[in-house]
Design a protein around this nucleic acid. Structure first.
Lengths: 247, 247
DNA sequence: TATTTTCAGCTTGTCTGACAAGCAGTCAAG
DNA sequence: CTTGACTGCTTGTCAGACAAGCTGAAAATA
């Protein structure tokens, strides 16, 4: 491919930092936010004003704001409103969750692997919660459990209480990363399974059984039986998804 | 890859709530992507065409694309280019890491919690790898270890080999979710710590010590000593970050 | 005076039209 | 066969327009 007479000279095109203005603007704003130059909860200037300060058009500013909203650094984007965007307080958490969910869903990770990861994390969470529980979170878990113990519960309410229970349990570990990743896993798993799970043969019976397992887990945590709590959680999760997967 | 027989996916917009159109568009495209309706690597229609199919203006489409780029689902956003955006191949991972980094930098998740989560996951990974290892991944880990054992290694090479070692070890568990989440965690943690690892007092000594720990971990895994492997990994990670945090 | 109504002025959301820069193919001239 | 011009696309950016909604102040009313 190379003639003997000619030396292969490669010319590398040095692309200077030509990134779109909108991206540059978003990065600059991001730096101002994460570095604390604008504090959390502050209002940002209006789009027009930002554009004038930065000497860019309004559409450019709008695109930059969209990027920041997608990153969860700026509020808004979920409703139409005339409110000025603010530096976001807590929506970055759900943003991170969604980002991981994207990875998981695109990564074609087998369902079993996700379930196993959830077992690992939730097992560690209840062990930690059994050691030194966060009482407020434990109370929230207990309330969720009481909701699930109400007779003749409809599936949707049960489902919401179930999520809240597991979330609270993870939060009781005192580790903020546990509930975050757990929530991500749960949502990714149910996205894999599809939402047609409510059509189990014996819904009330299944829900009652799950509730009993929840009660046992919570009690093990409350009594600081860390190994028992882990075992119960592991069986609970594995059993649940095993039953779902091959009905 | 544009055979005449392949018919392009058509997008039709369905407005649910009073969401901004741009957000609705981005969500719909996101669904099309993560559900595999448009496959990874595919080109999306041009902005004009998308706008015509969805019956929205081009600026609206552009804002939606910005959101998707910020989420890492669509390529582009880092250079100015006339290329049509594609469904992104693998950049979602770094996006997730960046999202977590935002969370951490805004102080919503303490660094220690992230480290502890990494301990949990990597501990479970080596246990699983000790039980039934994926041989190819173990070989990769061993090669990375050999790289680290080379004398007078520069920091960057060591660092790369270190990442590869841990990644391979996690992959040896056979669970695809472990290396994935681990990678996100690792990147988020190191982004938060800063890259100032070179400023350790005794770099060569530190690297040598880390390498010995790595070797011990790998041997424990290879000999199917699951508990030992977990203990070693736990100490390895905790020790590493404990040393970093308060130098 | 106190309360309600009105209204001007802002904001965001969206659309349209315009232009520059750059890539890709075509097609003719050398 | 190479070269160059040309055409048609793309993205990036801007400017201007309009609707809808909020806010605060002035005006009208009780």
């Amino acid at each position: 491919m190379v003639e003997p007479g000619k030396k292969p000279v490669r010319f590398a095109l040095r692309v200077e930092d030509r990134l779109p203005l909108s991206v540059a603007v978003s990065r600059q704003l991001r730096e101002a936010i994460v570095s604390g130059k604008v504090s959390v909860g502050d209002e940002l200037p209006s789009e027009k004003e930002l554009g004038e300060q930065l000497k860019v058009g309004r559409s450019t500013v709008r695109e930059a704001l969209r990027i920041l909203q997608a990153q969860g650094l700026v509020s808004g984007g979920d409703t139409v409103s005339t409110q000025r965007p603010r530096v976001s307080r807590d929506s970055t958490l759900s943003t991170a969750a969604q980002a991981i969910e994207n990875v998981v869903r695109l990564g074609q990770i087998p369902l079993d692997d996700l379930v196993e990861l959830r077992v690992v994390i939730e097992g560690a969470a209840v062990e930690s919660a059994a050691d030194e529980p966060d009482d407020a979170a434990l109370i929230a878990a207990r309330e969720a459990l009481e909701t699930m113990q109400r007779p003749k519960l409809d599936v949707e309410t049960f489902r919401a209480a179930d999520i809240l229970f597991h979330q609270s349990l993870a939060a009781a570990s005192g580790n903020a990363a546990f509930p975050l990743v757990m929530g991500v896993l749960r949502s990714a798993i149910s996205a894999h399974l599809g939402e047609a799970l409510d059509k189990v043969p014996h819904v009330q019976k299944t829900m009652a059984a799950l509730t009993r397992e929840h009660a046992a887990i919570l009690e093990a945590v409350a009594r600081a039986h860390r190994k028992l709590a882990r075992t119960l959680v592991t069986e609970h999760i594995r059993g649940f998804y095993a039953g779902r997967r091959a009905p």
